[in-house]
Nucleic acid binder design. Structure first.
Length: 133
RNA sequence: CACCGUUGAUGUUCUAUCGCCUUCAAAGCUUGCUUUGGUGGAGGAAAGUCCGGGCAGCGCAGAGCAUCCUGCUUCCUAACGGGAAGGGGCAAAACCGGUAACGGUUUGGUCACAGAAAGUGCCGCAGAAAAUUACCGUCCGGCCUUGGCCGGAUAAGGGUGAAAACGUGAGGUAAGAGCUCACGGUGUGUUUCCGUAAGGUGCAUUCGGGUAAACCUCAGGAGUUGAAAAACCAAAUAAGUCAUGGUUUGUCUCCGGACAAAAAGAACGGCUCGUUCAAAUUCCCUUCAACAGGAAUACCAUGGCGGGUAGGUUGAUUGAGGUGUUGUGUGAACAACAUCCCAGAUAAAUGAUAGAGCUUCCGGUGAAUAACCGGAAUACAGAACCCGGCUUACAAUCAACGGUGAACA
RNA sequence: GGUCCUGUGGCCGAGUGGUUAGGCAGAGGUCUGCAAAACCUUGUACAGCGGUUCAAAUCCGCUCGGGACCU
């Protein structure tokens, strides 16, 4: 796999960085370990991913907590933006250890948060993950 | 002018930074990715999934029965439980006619609006009685204790109820009663005229409680599943195990099979008639032999368990398409011509952050509805195969209509 | 995305168009020295709106919750 040979990390967020494989997704949900940080939960698993990037991410907001599709979309978009801007600090560590991760970021709160709160919490949770991992 | 209601239309714009999806062009090479530049990127309801289609799989000789849906008429439409026009009913307002019952005209509103005179059921409580009626009452006759009893007639009045056996006025009578008459209402008709029709109108005749969003009758309609459908490519594979049922007969034969028929089983269909479909040998007992019966192995069908794979392409965005003009029609709508191509994601793009503007409201400066400053609000809501409707949600603005209030003439 | 089911007091649940059963829980009382148990009494309901009907939890339509299934 030629993947880890090109560590040119910008703020882009392409399809290869998103978790699209149903198989890996099922594995992640059943066998993954989780990190909690009040309104968020990060589920992670070390696997081999067919991708040039060190990690693949998926974002989820449960339909049970938010009936409105508009609100669900808004939360997912904010989560994605924060991840996109803050992954730069996180990727080199993975490259250094020569590991690949599958991640699932779930919002478990029941009210729509504002951007500053999301940014603060997600940077925290990524730091936690880096320490454990 | 202000507020409220109904209907219809519109339903925010720009800049900066960092990004996402589609597609086109060029360049690079690891030949399917990267880089650069351009194009396009949510709605009036995308929602609810309440109807109707297209499309696709499976099924389909035709008929009957059952189940479900729809229900004034004519038209529009691919189709509809949608829409348009018309008819009728209902309650209301105003005016007119009449002693009254009631009728007529106009206005806007509203109605799931076939049949109760095919049949069955139901109508609690109250009331005599809830559909061949009689408690009080009224009248007649008889008996006697003189205000009661018995026999009959009657259905005006009373009371009950949501609803009481056509209504008003007169005649009539022992008392009464559509018993009779006039007027009014309702239904019915081998009937007159008008209308494509629903129906209206005249004439004749009749007197019949309500309920079909109770069963039902009549008329019309419905095969079933649902894009997680379906087709193709790639990858993977079992040949395992359990249960149930079955493997019959005849003809031909190149001995591999082929054809025909019957029963049961399975598949299809809501059910019935119906349509389609697969697979054999050996041994034991009995017998002259076979059939039938039992056992074994193998095979066939169906189902369960277990196992494998879960990537991509098509479907899938040019269509009952949009916009404009003209014409036809009362209208829904249709026709002709011109012009345009306008999201296509798939763990699911269409964004995030910051700032400014538009619109409305509030406050201040101001003569001011001008201008400036400050503050607040900006809804409902996110394509998931595609269309036509319906329903529901909705800040603000505009238009039309209706209602209420105030001011002026 | 699609296909269905369901809603009755605080909880569980019955209900044929005609005054919404029953149990548990709660409150008050009897009994007791005090409690428990037992007995008696009592309050609180048809998801919302509209329609059909004299009358609707029930029949019909729309809306709002809750739940299940299909890869």
């Amino acid at each position: 796999m030629c993947a880890i040979a090109t560590p040119k990390f910008t703020q882009t967020f392409r399809k290869a960085e998103r978790l699209t494989s149903r198989k890996i997704f099922d594995l992640l949900v059943t066998k993954g370990r989780s990190v909690n940080e009040s309104p968020f939960r990060l589920i992670w698993l070390k696997t081999v991913i067919d991708s040039p990037f060190p990690a693949q991410v998926a974002f989820a907001v449960p339909k049970k907590n938010f009936k409105s599709a508009v609100k669900r979309n808004r939360i997912k978009r904010m989560m994605r933006e924060v991840y996109r801007k803050n992954k730069v600090a996180f990727y080199p560590l993975l490259v250094q250890k020569e590991q690949q991760l599958a991640l699932l970021l779930v919002y478990t709160g029941k009210t729509v948060p504002d951007y500053a709160e999301v940014e603060q919490k997600i940077t925290l949770i990524l730091q936690h993950l880096a320490e454990i991992f």
